[in-house]
Design a protein around this nucleic acid. Structure first.
Lengths: 204, 204
DNA sequence: GCAAAACCATACGCTACCGTATGGAGGTGG
DNA sequence: CCACCTCCATACGGTAGCGTATGGTTTTGC
């Protein structure tokens, strides 16, 4: 069970590669050029090797893409958990989560790519799992805030839709979004206020 | 100034084609397979002709794509205007607009495709115009509802983000959205309520 | 009814990528 | 020290699309 994936020789150039080297390069390409950029031959060039290596570690391009997305899924999930774990108050957690899209723009590039190719057969299942997990979690937060089951679920959907929509706006037309840091904060404040006011428990 | 684009012979099969025939076929392909499906050779096959025709009317694939997107832009804008024109009350207009994404799923396929390839160099400018126009319009609706400039703009952004997010959810993971017609209505009701409550005039 | 213009078919070459086949190099254990 | 297993390079063939070239076929205008 070594599971190293990336062989030793740290730092050296012409070392031999492992599975993890390929998914790492693929993640970088994913962030820069989207799903289409996860292509064997360009990646090989990028890694200073050839397709021979890739097809040794993975049977096909889709297999590499699959492995890459699964790696992203776990790393991303962990990242969110640790990010949110520092807060205990549900309202603050909500704020951290919703704020993350406005703050870190560059770090979400992989997510943007995944969303862009949502209907790709290899991407879809991953995205499905991530989405369901997130919405459920948001619903639990709203439940903690006192909303009934149905109401919490609906608010969670609305919140998540807002999150996705902002990601889309940030990617495609950032001009329409508030530019100044202060305006962004104000905007975030208002969004959360709007999402968490009115309609108390047993409304759904 | 004939500007027919699609030559006569209505209904016949082996007629000669005009510019408009190509953008029409491209729109269909766009809805079904996204931007990548707007490709000369497949379209030619679909039209029962050859590339020769395409490269007569358009100098390149990107030119065809460009023309197609511009056609979509104007037709889509007109469609929305007529759709909303039947309502006079700003709150009802808001409802019609936001409801459209939940109701008509199939008809928005082109928009979905455009959103998916938002950063494509040919797509981006079109999307930019459409987005800015829509957000401005939404902001004017919120202003009519009594919100101040800044507040109206922020609410418009939130509303539009919710719209975009729902489009994304509908495309990628429809399972998380309410399935039953009645639940959808309820959900739409709540969304609008949440978006239009609190924070009166001169708040921004 | 015939020249000119508009339109289309076919053949070609080019790029980018996929996947296979095969002959190695390079470490590693007995 | 050599057989073996791991890993890689190269060469090949295939697909899908772009764009060009060139000659042919319709229309249209006069």
């Amino acid at each position: 069970m070594s599971e190293r994936g990336v062989s030793a020789h740290d730092g050296d150039s012409r070392r031999r590669l492992g599975k993890a080297d390929w998914t790492a390069a693929a993640l970088a390409a994913l962030a820069e050029g989207g799903v289409a950029a996860v292509a064997i031959e360009p990646l090989a060039a990028r890694l200073g090797t050839t397709k021979g290596s890739a097809y040794w570690h993975y049977p096909s391009r889709d297999a590499l893409l699959h492995a890459t997305l699964e790696r992203w899924e776990v790393e991303h999930t962990e990242a969110i958990i640790t990010m949110v774990g520092s807060e205990s108050d549900p309202a603050r957690r909500l704020r951290v989560l919703l704020g993350s899209v406005l703050e870190h723009a560059a770090e979400n590039q992989v997510e943007i790519a995944v969303l862009a190719d949502a209907d790709h057969p290899v991407v879809a299942p991953v995205l499905q799992r991530v989405t369901e997990r997130r919405v459920s979690y948001l619903a639990s937060l709203f439940a903690e805030l006192g909303y009934g089951r149905g109401e919490a679920r609906r608010r969670a959907l609305l919140a998540y839709a807002a999150y996705l929509g902002h990601a889309q706006l940030l990617r495609a037309t950032p001009e329409v979004l508030p530019a100044a840091r202060s305006t962004q904060r104000r905007y975030l404040d208002q969004t959360i206020r709007v999402l968490t006011q009115g309609g108390g428990p047993s409304t759904g």
